[in-house]
Simulated scan of single mutants.
Amino acid sequence: MLTPLTGPHDPRFQESEAAHILERAAELQRLASDARRMSVGELEEAAAVAGIDASFVRRAAGEMALRQAGRERATPTLGAPRTLVLEVVLDGEIPVRAYEYVIEAIRRHTGELGVASLIGRSLTWTALPKHGPAGPRWSRTIALTVVPHGGRTRVRIEEKLDHLVRGVFGAAAGSGSGGALLSTLPLAALSTSLALALALPLTAAACVGAWIVARQVYRARVDARARELDGAMQAISTIAQNYAKARALARATPKAS
């Protein structure tokens, strides 16, 4: 245990050293706070005492993860995040033989084809950009990683939304400029100075209106994709829970002599 540095012979620190000490103290506090966080399994145990089914705990945890992802990564200009990230640590290790069910879960909920690779016992699955049901323009960039270690499994699903941003806001830019052009056609009969004075506000209004509509469309599509990823995460959590229960039952069942 460290001896407290107090008393008549307290050490003195330079400004740079003091800054480093404070930075390290903040890091230690953050680590201590992280250590007090409850896993989904611990939440399920606490809920069981109150008579709450574990499936509702997993659903509520997934919804909270979605809200945190949106709150932490939301882009004000777009009205929704550019990246969706869901990450949970599940009690129990998902065995390699169950990865086919994990892959089927992510495929079923997203509708995307993908390719899987295995490094040791860690699974990585990524969607194939040009083979999605919506076509290359709306292709999805999804990555799933499953890492079992130390009696737990870390599952992370990430989707980058760059294609969606370009598709929605690119269409908005085209419709906004087209609407602005149409709105200025009746001004052609006016004098040049007057037509210019009226055309600028009309063009700006058309572009702003198109961007507002695009934000609403983008937010709705991001929410829909987030629900799909959440459904996949819930399905994977159920797979992990089923295998954990099976292992616990196998350990509890006495072997025949």
Rank of each mutant, 00 (worst) to 15 (best):
V208H: 08
S175A: 15
G176K: 00
L202M: 15
G178F: 08
A172V: 07
F169N: 06
L187F: 07
R219D: 06
A180H: 08
L187I: 13
A204K: 11
L198G: 02
A204H: 13
I212H: 09
T203R: 14
G176I: 03
C207E: 13
L185N: 06
A214V: 11
Y218F: 09
L198I: 07
G176L: 02
A210C: 13
L182V: 14
L185M: 05
V222G: 02
A210Q: 12
A195I: 08
G170C: 07
I212A: 10
A173Q: 15
V222R: 02
G179R: 02
A188S: 11
V222I: 03
A188V: 10
T192I: 13
A205Q: 10
S175M: 13
A195C: 12
R219S: 08
A214C: 11
V168W: 00
A173G: 15
D223A: 08
G167F: 01
C207D: 13
A180Q: 05
L185P: 04
A171I: 05
A189W: 05
V217C: 00
V208I: 14
Y218S: 06
F169L: 13
A197T: 09
L182M: 13
A195D: 12
V168Q: 03
T184E: 15
C207N: 13
V217L: 11
L198Q: 09
A188C: 01
T184S: 13
I212T: 11
C207A: 15
A220W: 01
G178N: 06
Q216C: 07
V213C: 02
R221V: 08
A220T: 03
P201C: 09
L200Y: 05
Y218R: 05
G209V: 07
A171H: 00
S183D: 15
A205D: 07
A206K: 00
S183P: 10
F169K: 10
A206D: 00
T184I: 14
V208L: 12
L194R: 07
L190E: 03
W211V: 10
I212S: 06
R221Q: 14
G174Y: 06
A210E: 11
S183L: 14
Q216L: 06
L185I: 09
Q216D: 08
V222W: 00
S177A: 15
L196A: 15
S193Y: 12
L198M: 11
P186V: 04
P201K: 01
G178V: 03
